[in-house]
Amino acid sequence: MTDVASRRDAGERPAPPERVVTLTVNGRSYALRMDTRVTLLDALRDRLGLVGTKKGCDQGACGACTVHLDGRRVLACLTLAAQAEGRAITTIEGISGTDGPHPVQQAFMEHDGFQCGFCTPGQIMSAVALMAEGRAGSDEEIREFMSGNLCRCGAYPNIVAAIREAATRGGHDARL
């Protein structure tokens, strides 16, 4: 079996196209030489070690990879890293302040807005954006505009309660 590993040296075959991409993540700038195929999600997770952003489907259907691009919530799995160049990227690692958790994070803890916790970073990134969009006015509105974030544990009622509270506590001007 050992010859399997040594049979092919790197460089024997044509390398896939690469590109240097400069990403600005949570206010910090990173220059990365990457395969052009690398998505923003994989760049964050595999190249920058920012594993708080989750991969739940890699097909744009679950919302676990929600990040903010220039302040708007998007899916990192269907965004090429190269497309995010020059844009301000905010991830779950970038929303807590030095003075403690973001009000939405605090409200999620108080209301038990998660169980396994895997979808939680995406839910919170979505919730922070939702409040900035002015869509936390009623439970019905919160439910509709949070429906792009699946939670298989079924924490939805508690997520709604958490967002309701964060919004009524004046979270509209929450850090974003």
Binding site: L50, V51, G52, S96, P101, F114, P121
Partner: peptide, 14 residues
């Protein structure tokens, strides 16, 4: 909770 809401709870894929 604090680890889950900050994205620092490590799951197998992390």
């Amino acid at each position: 909770g604090p680890r889950k809401v900050t994205g620092t709870a490590p799951y197998p894929m992390d």
